[in-house]
């Protein structure tokens, strides 16, 4: 039951100093939230080819591509701090890390411009058309 009076504050003041991290979007759901030895297993075995990267995850071949955040946009990873009990109270999140680009991975299929996450990056431009001010 959501409460419509509480707000979620975003502690965004330190964005500039926040560290940039590599970000990967995987084509599978990993039922875990916590540490993962990404650099030891994924980064160390990734191969860079002409237009794509390849790697195996749990014995399955993945093909990936690095894409940038849309112009004028930055990727933020938000983390909740001081989680309080009730839903009625205001909550706070901070920016734990920042990214300008991300690598997304397809299961077996080569990355291409029809991939949904690639097209999603067009959304801000469409949003500007829908929400931008209309001339008088």
């Amino acid at each position: 039951m959501s409460c419509n009076t509480s707000v979620i504050r975003v502690q965004a003041s330190s964005v500039e100093q926040t560290q940039r991290v590599p970000v990967h979007l995987m084509p599978c759901e990993i039922e875990h939230n916590g540490t993962a030895r990404v650099s030891q297993y994924l980064t160390a075995t990734t191969k860079d080819c002409k237009h794509e990267k390849t790697v195996s995850f749990r014995g399955r071949g993945l093909r990936g591509q690095e894409i940038s955040c849309p112009q004028g946009y930055t990727g933020l990873v938000l983390k909740e701090i001081n989680k309080l009990g009730s839903d009625q109270e205001d909550r706070t999140v901070r920016v734990s890390s920042v990214f300008d680009k991300l690598t997304y991975w397809n299961l077996e299929t080569p990355p291409n411009s029809d991939d949904t996450v690639v097209m999603a990056m067009d959304w801000p431009e469409l949003a500007e058309a829908i929400h931008g001010p209309v001339e008088d």
Binding site: I30, H32, A36, R37, Y41, L42, T45, R58, G59, R60
Partner: peptide
């Protein structure tokens, strides 16, 4: 066995022993 990544590429993930353990 790494809980997230499974095994190094030395291991054949398609073997049932490997899969079951993972």
């Amino acid at each position: 066995l790494d809980p997230v990544f499974g095994y190094p590429q030395f291991v054949r993930f398609s073997w049932s022993t490997a899969q079951t353990l993972m």
